[in-house]
Design a binder for these strands. Structure first.
Lengths: 349, 349
DNA sequence: TCAAATCTTGATACCGGTGTCATAGGGCGT
DNA sequence: ACGCCCTATGACACCGGTATCAAGATTTGA
């Protein structure tokens, strides 16, 4: 192997940021050959490759993502698109995604948005096109928005939907799906097994697939024990604490007060805590409460909340990995399970 | 003004993404002149400028950030660097930053890191240099790390520190500082005014400026009422819920049980809730608790937590605005206030 | 052994912008 | 009217990579 130590030493002493031209010059090869090595092209002699890599290592060359991106007509950025009021959920997704991105040379760019704005689609289209994103991850609930999915198909940008598993969500593009029914079914069975028969349900908002899936799973659980969701004991919320509070208040002050509540998410469950405490009820002695999400709050409230855990962070990791190797890969859907975490907010009647 | 409608219409029909070359050709001007218009160069005739802008608007041209970045030798990305266990704090910062970035053509890139890793500095240097960041925002506690600040000075990348106000933090680079003492002083006074005399303090970890500032402020508040932090009633935590739980447990089982607690953050305060409930104490009847941060959890726990509010989101907004206009601007420090929010976890003895 | 096929490499254009410097035209003073 | 200065614009190189395609080097097959 030929090296030109003097030139290399001189370059290192100059303390300049190395470019591909420097590497080429110092290795006595053309830019293009260096480029081939960077991109792991097979048509480079092993000896040449080693020589180039030796120079690269010695002068600490790292290809400039902007220049590379310009030539490739795409950036090394992955967009995280969401419209989700739950901060903790978003953070977990970020952490999982960043985890998987570490060392890949790709960065994560945030893009929260407002699906009720009339700029919604245009805004996202601009973002993706202008930044020439390498890929996009879409979180629920907008991962179920028809207009958005249509846009993503049009743009031909690799994307991954994160969503609740449902026949309607298993087709079209890469997807990371969660089997929300399983955990909710377990929650329903759990409450039934504790002997509860009057069980209230605080539903999520219309139009959220997660809401209907959770309801369906919960119902399955009850039905397995000869029970069902009673219309009089079902109130709809919108996943906010306040709505959970209001819903619980209504349920707990009705003539047929339930002895247990299942809320479509932790936030609403914690709203129910407030309502219960406000009415002087003790949890779990007078009222069992079960949530969904296993948010950090679940183990921080008192008593710690029985809830359903979703492996959010793992799902985000999987989403990124899917994107990183999406290069022509067939579209696929990964499915994650959910599981009941029994804490201290549920007890026998 | 001259326009060449036919060519323009033809171009629009082609549905191609417009480049500066298209604009130049359709406006019968050189690339360079178009570039001047984009960059608001003063040496362009008003008439020419309008003509260029007309073409830009009609064909929907938007300069490619990567190409522009390559030529400018910097990107249009701002890095958010943090090593903070508090998810909610981070989200608020993100939201504020994104808020201020909207429409600026600059994007936010996340970079959580681990200050205990030996790669810590190298990792951040690589990130900033490789991405040629337009600016960097550093959150506490690493915003007080000497090595990191040294690195940022070396790199000449515009940066903003977010930190607690303190003589040591008012110099060096742009800074967004919070007057943490004020709110903590108010907290101390509040507890004293309620008649508490045995007041426990759960301190934040060593090395966090926020921890020492909060302690100092709290102490000022007590001293204004002839009290002080009693050594026997002070325990150190590390800002985690678990540490708050342990600390409170120690304080509440000592012979001179305090009737009120002030915790260095909400997380620890909520740990204290757990300890109190576990011991059968009622809040606020048997024990008053006060936190710091006004995290979303503060109003979700029961009873809602009295705490100190910091305008986190506004601070992030200010940080971004500082960066965006940092072009040669003098280094300055913006100072934000903190304020006590009295809820229902504090009451008379 | 020699032509054909294959493997390796390089010259040059190009991605989409900006910087440098030259130049044509208009206003000014004398 | 002349030269001078200033203003507005453009030609061309450049940022740091990749694509195309041609050409030299090596291998293969008969």
């Amino acid at each position: 192997m030929t090296t030109y130590d003097d030139d290399i030493e001189a370059f290192i002493k100059s303390r300049k940021k190395a470019t591909i031209n420097d590497v080429a010059r110092l290795a006595r090869l053309s830019k293009k050959t260096v480029s081939r090595v960077i991109n792991a092209s097979p048509s480079v002699r092993a000896e040449t490759r080693d020589q180039v890599n030796a120079v690269i290592d010695r002068i600490g060359f790292r290809p400039d993502p902007q220049a590379r991106g310009l030539a490739f007509r795409r950036s090394f950025l992955i967009g995280l698109i969401y419209d989700n009021p739950n901060a903790q959920y978003v953070v977990n997704m970020q952490l999982g995604a960043l985890d998987a991105l570490r060392g890949s040379g790709t960065e994560l760019v945030l893009h929260p948005c407002d699906r009720h704005s009339d700029q919604f689609i245009k805004d996202i289209r601009d973002f993706i096109e202008l930044q020439r994103l390498a890929g996009v991850i879409v979180l629920p609930p907008i991962s179920e928005d028809k207009r958005l999915l249509g846009l993503l198909e049009d743009l031909k940008t690799p994307y991954v939907r994160v969503s609740a598993l449902h026949p309607a969500t298993t087709k079209g593009g890469h997807a990371i799906l969660s089997k929300e029914r399983i955990g909710c079914r377990a929650a329903g069975e759990h409450l039934a097994q504790l002997g509860h028969t009057r069980i209230g349900f605080i539903a999520g908002p219309d139009g959220y697939l997660s809401a209907s899936e959770r309801r369906a799973g919960f119902r399955e659980g009850l039905q397995a024990h000869g029970l069902d969701i009673e219309p009089a004991l079902e109130v709809q919320g919108d996943y906010t604490l306040e709505s959970g509070h209001a819903a619980a208040l209504r349920l707990l002050t009705s003539d047929t007060r339930p002895t247990a509540l299942f809320a479509g998410n932790d936030e609403m469950a914690i709203g129910a805590y407030k309502a219960a405490f406000g009415l002087g009820l003790r949890i779990p002695d007078d009222l069992s409460i079960c949530g969904y999400d296993d948010s950090p709050m679940a183990e921080r409230v008192y008593p710690p909340l029985t809830t359903v855990h979703l492996p959010t962070r793992d799902m985000a990791r999987a989403a990124v990995l899917t994107l990183l190797r999406s290069e022509g890969a067939p579209e696929d859907a990964l499915i994650f399970e959910s599981a009941l975490v029994v804490r201290q907010s549920t007890a026998k009647v």
